[in-house]
């Protein structure tokens, strides 16, 4: 990979803001989002720079989504140990340890319901997105914002097209319900 490969630089520059926002919405942390985006950039350049540029988008977002899922996995582990330690120390801090891939909305600890009611439409949208389970959030952002097809989204999320359709449909239903009721 050349240091100044203009095509790769142009590609990364074109996706970095969206990638950062996706990671930030998913993690609720600016620092973690920056780390995730940087890792995704490294992964693309190191592993896939020789691939046709037309494939970079799907590959980059696949790496990004993978990094976000890793973040959730690590957060789940940390939360489980933290809860266990707190329980051991006699504190009333339970953590049911459910699979965050399916259900965890916001490991950063904010209450999405509070965020949805914000007057600003961007904040309301982000709050509603954070309230979604991760897979729904990913499917929605990749399809609607990144403009990926069902097939491309399935590749990025490493799941079947049927799963993408299900996650996407549920996300749209929930977001419309929340945001249209909110008047955003």
């Amino acid at each position: 990979m050349l240091d100044n490969d203009p095509a790769m630089e142009q590609f990364l520059a074109s996706v970095e803001r969206r990638a950062f926002r996706m990671a930030e919405i998913a993690t609720g942390s600016t620092e973690d989002a920056l780390d995730i985006v940087q890792d995704a950039m490294f992964g693309l350049v190191r592993r896939y720079a020789s691939k046709p540029a037309s494939e970079w988008g799907a590959l980059f977002f696949r790496i990004l989504e993978s990094r976000i899922r890793d973040w959730y996995r690590r957060t789940r582990v940390r939360n489980r140990w933290r809860a266990w330690l707190h329980e051991w120390r006699g504190r009333d801090e339970a953590n049911d340890g459910e699979d965050p891939m399916a259900t965890l909305a916001d490991p950063a600890g904010r209450d999405p319901a509070d965020e949805v009611v914000q007057a600003d439409s961007i904040a309301a949208l982000e709050g509603a997105l954070r309230e979604l389970p991760l897979r729904q959030q990913q499917a929605f952002l990749l399809r609607v914002w990144q403009g990926m097809s069902v097939l491309e989204t399935a590749a990025a999320m490493k799941c079947s097209e049927g799963s993408v359709k299900t996650h996407y449909s549920r996300a749209v239903h929930m977001l419309r319900k929340v945001l249209e009721n909110d008047g955003s």
Binding site: M1, D3, E9, R21, L34, L44, V45, R46
Partner: peptide, 20 residues
């Protein structure tokens, strides 16, 4: 996005591009 975040994204991009 604020200037600091944009700067850090730019730095991340340049670091990645140097990962030859």
């Amino acid at each position: 996005l604020d200037a600091r975040t944009l700067s850090r994204l730019r730095q991340a991009r340049h670091r990645a591009l140097q990962a030859d």
